[in-house]
C-alpha cells in the first residue's frame, strides 16, 4: 500500500530550473489541443452567457442577438421575483428534486449493494431486468405512468411527480459497479464484528462509495430539477408546476416572453450550482482516498 510519502509529488528537475513565465506550447499538436479545448469551453459557456444576457434585455431587444444589451435592465428579475408563482414553482422543484435525490441514493445503493454482495438465485436475471428498463425511452413510459397515477389518484400531486424517479436503473447499475470495488473482506470483517446486514451497508459499504453517491446525487438532482415532460403531463394546477413547466408558461399564445424565461432559468441554475459545488468536494475527496488505499 502507498504511504503519504509515496504520494508526494516530486517535481522534475527541468520544472525546478524554470524561473521565467510559463513556457509556450512546444509543438503544433499542443496548440491544436489548446484551441480545441478553448472552442469546447466557449461552446459550453455561450448558452449560459446568452441566458444571462437575454435576462438583462428589454422585450423588444430579445431577438437582437447582440451579446451586450443596449439598455441593460434588471426589470425582468424584479418581475419574476415579485410574481408569487415563481416561488411556488421553485419550492415545488426543490422539494421534488431533494426528496427524489435522497430516495434514489438510498434505494439505488441498497439494490446495487444487494445485487453485488449477496449470492441468491435469479440475481443475474433481476440485474438484467433492471438494466433493460434503460432501453425504454421516457416518452414511452409516460402513458403507463399517467394511467397508474390516474388510478391511484396521484395526478397533480408531489407523489405523482416524484414516483417514477424514486429509484433508477442507471443509479442501481452505477452503485452496483462501485460496490464491486469494496473488498468482501470489509463486509466479512463487519459480519464477524457483529453488525447486521443493514448496519454493514450503512456503516461500512456506503462511506466507501461516497464518490459514486455524490455523482449519483448530482445526476439525479439535475435530472429532476430540469425535468419537463412528466411534470408537464402529471400536473394540472399552476401551484403544482415545477420550475421548467412554470417558466414555459410565461408569455401567451401569440408571443413567448423569452426574457422572463431566461431570467427564471438564470435564477434556477443557482441551486444546481450549489448542489454541484457541495458534492464535487466529495468526489474529489473520494478520488484522493481511493488513491491512498493501495
Amino acid at each position: 500500500m502507498a504511504t503519504a510519502e509515496d504520494l508526494q509529488v516530486k517535481p522534475k528537475a527541468d520544472v525546478l530550473l524554470q524561473t521565467g513565465p510559463s513556457r509556450p506550447p512546444r509543438n503544433m499538436g499542443q496548440i491544436i489541443r489548446f484551441l480545441l479545448l478553448f472552442a469546447g469551453g466557449i461552446l459550453m459557456v455561450m448558452p449560459i452567457a446568452f441566458m444571462i444576457s437575454t435576462s438583462l434585455k428589454w422585450p423588444h431587444e430579445v431577438y437582437n442577438l447582440n451579446f451586450i444589451p443596449d439598455e441593460p435592465t434588471i426589470e425582468n428579475y424584479i418581475y419574476v421575483l415579485e410574481d408569487g408563482r415563481f416561488y411556488w414553482w421553485f419550492l415545488n422543484s426543490l422539494i421534488i428534486a431533494v426528496i427524489t435525490t435522497i430516495c434514489s441514493v438510498i434505494f439505488d445503493s441498497l439494490v446495487g449493494y444487494t445485487l453485488c454482495k449477496f449470492r441468491f438465485p435469479g440475481r443475474y436475471i433481476v440485474f438484467i431486468a433492471i438494466l433493460s428498463t434503460l432501453m425504454i425511452p421516457t416518452e414511452m413510459l409516460v402513458i403507463p405512468w399517467y394511467l397508474m397515477s390516474q388510478q391511484f389518484g396521484w395526478l397533480d400531486t408531489y407523489w405523482g411527480i416524484m414516483f417514477p424517479g424514486l429509484m433508477t436503473a442507471f443509479g442501481t447499475f452505477l452503485m452496483k459497479q462501485f460496490f464491486e470495488t469494496v473488498p468482501d473482506d470489509f463486509i466479512e470483517a463487519a459480519r464477524i464484528d457483529g453488525l447486521n446486514e443493514l448496519q454493514i451497508w450503512w456503516t461500512v459499504a456506503m462511506p466507501l462509495v461516497r464518490p459514486a453517491l455524490a455523482a449519483l446525487a448530482i445526476f439525479v438532482f439535475l435530472g429532476n430539477w430540469t425535468a419537463f415532460i412528466w411534470p408537464l403531463i402529471v400536473t394540472n394546477s399552476v401551484e403544482m408546476y415545477t420550475l421548467p413547466v412554470g417558466l414555459s408558461s410565461f408569455g401567451d399564445e401569440a408571443d413567448v416572453a423569452w426574457e422572463l424565461i431566461m431570467t427564471g432559468a438564470a435564477i434556477s441554475t443557482i441551486p444546481t450550482l450549489i448542489v454541484f459545488l457541495i458534492f464535487q468536494r466529495f468526489i474529489i475527496r473520494g478520488v484522493v482516498m481511493a488513491g491512498l488505499k493501495g
Binding site: 473488498p183 473482506d185 466479512e188 459480519r191 464477524i192 464484528d193 453488525l195 462511506p207 466507501l208 488505499k293
Partner: peptide, 27 residues
C-alpha cells in the same frame, strides 16, 4: 459469525479507510 466468539484478521487487513485507528479498533 458474530455468535461464534471468534475474531479474524484478513490478508488485506480489512481496516476501514474512512475510520480512525480508534474507531477501527473499537469497531
Amino acid at each position: 459469525p458474530k455468535d461464534r466468539d471468534i475474531a479474524m484478521v484478513f490478508q488485506n487487513y480489512a481496516i476501514y479507510p474512512h475510520m480512525t485507528v480508534r474507531k477501527n479498533i473499537g469497531f
